[in-house]
């Protein structure tokens, strides 16, 4: 994506949404999933992803599980109960934002 600032504010919502759809995920898996879903348009860097994951963990939205996989340890993240509720709010906020932006950028597409 040419301007990564456009998605920065939505990174936590993207993470929460992915974790809502998958039981648990690890950092690299999240970056690859986003890349796959956006056909390479959106690339989440390590420097942006991990601080966001740690912030969500500190806020009590994510829980961590460490498992040994392929000769190394892997940190899996999953939504907490509070995280599941917050995902609904965040997604709703993001949808409202997208709607507002569409109204601003392309008002003809908005029928109502």
């Amino acid at each position: 994506m040419a301007n990564s600032n456009l998605y920065k504010g939505s990174l936590t919502t993207i993470i929460l949404k992915l974790l809502e759809e998958h039981d648990k995920m690890y950092g690299y898996e999240i970056t690859q999933k986003v890349k796959e879903l956006t056909k390479g348009e959106l690339k989440i860097t390590e420097g942006a992803l991990y601080p966001s994951l740690h912030k969500l963990e500190a806020d009590g939205l994510l829980d961590v599980e460490v498992a040994r996989v392929d000769n190394r340890l892997r940190k899996y993240y999953r939504l907490t109960e509070h995280g599941t509720k917050e995902t609904i709010n965040k997604l709703s906020e993001l949808q409202d934002y997208i709607k507002t932006m569409q109204a601003l950028v392309n008002p003809k597409l908005i029928l109502e």
Binding site: Y28, Q32, Y50, V69, D70, R72, K75
Partner: peptide
Amino acid sequence: TDIRIEMVDHVASEIEF
């Protein structure tokens, strides 16, 4: 350790890929 574990896994996953 808690920060490094994650970085090691990330780097290793990318190299394997």
